[in-house]
């Protein structure tokens, strides 16, 4: 079976579970609350406030949703059944990455209009560029979030995911929030994060007993 087909099956499975368990509700609400709270606290003027608030809301909510997604996978050791199937094991990381991206995109699609409204953000003609930068930022969050949520799985330490991954992602937030002129840097780092994440994920899936 080809890698793309296996990936499609796994992503479809993740989305189906998501629709049943609706684990995205919590993070979404958290993101909305964060956007509202920051909108109340910060003056609307500078574009930075709006983009910064948006990035923070998406980051925190996104990481939370990734953590929940991994928790669902770890429940009843369902992940182990996937690890036994070579076709699934080879594409496990990209499939999880794609599913996380869908979650992140959903959160972004909900929160972005809110922030644009709350902070009276005027993006003008750089909308395409900003959207591209935002998309690349989401890929970075998903790449690191997936591998570290797998690393920290189990009990108390999984709650730590945002604390652990946030320092690594702060520069991405900086670049996106300040409106980086060239997406090339973000693209390069996405490549590095995905590559490192994939290798790390594969390493993590092998326990040493």
């Amino acid at each position: 079976m080809s890698g793309t087909r296996a990936m499609a099956i796994l992503v479809a499975k993740d989305l189906r579970i998501e629709m049943r368990a609706i684990s995205l509700a919590g993070p979404l609400i958290l993101a909305i609350i964060a956007a509202c709270a920051l909108g109340l606290a910060l003056p609307a003027g500078p574009l930075r406030h709006g983009s910064g608030a948006l990035c923070m809301a998406v980051l925190v909510a996104g990481l939370l949703s990734i953590e929940r997604g991994m928790a669902l996978e770890r429940q009843d050791d369902a992940l182990a059944s996937l690890l036994l199937i070579p076709a699934a094991r080879a594409v496990l990381y990209p499939a999880k990455l794609a599913a996380c991206l869908v979650h992140l995109a959903t959160i972004s699609l909900v929160v972005t209009p809110l922030c644009i409204v709350f902070f009276s953000m005027d993006l003008g003609d750089s909308l395409g560029r900003v959207a591209l930068a935002g998309g690349l930022g989401l890929v970075a969050i998903a790449a690191l979030g997936t591998v570290f949520s797998a690393a920290l799985a189990g009990g108390a330490s999984s709650r730590l995911l945002p604390a652990v991954v946030a320092p690594l992602l702060l520069p991405v937030v900086l670049l996106v929030a300040r409106g980086t002129p060239s997406p090339g840097v973000l693209l390069a780092f996405d490549a590095v994060f995905v590559a490192a994440g994939w290798i790390g994920f594969d390493a993590l899936m092998e326990e040493v007993a």
Binding site: K13, R20, A21, L72, D77, A78, A80, S81, L84
Partner: peptide
């Protein structure tokens, strides 16, 4: 084929 301590199935499916 492995049957583990836990059933290794997805609860929500």
């Amino acid at each position: 084929g492995l049957l583990g301590h836990q059933h290794m199935l997805y609860r929500d499916l």
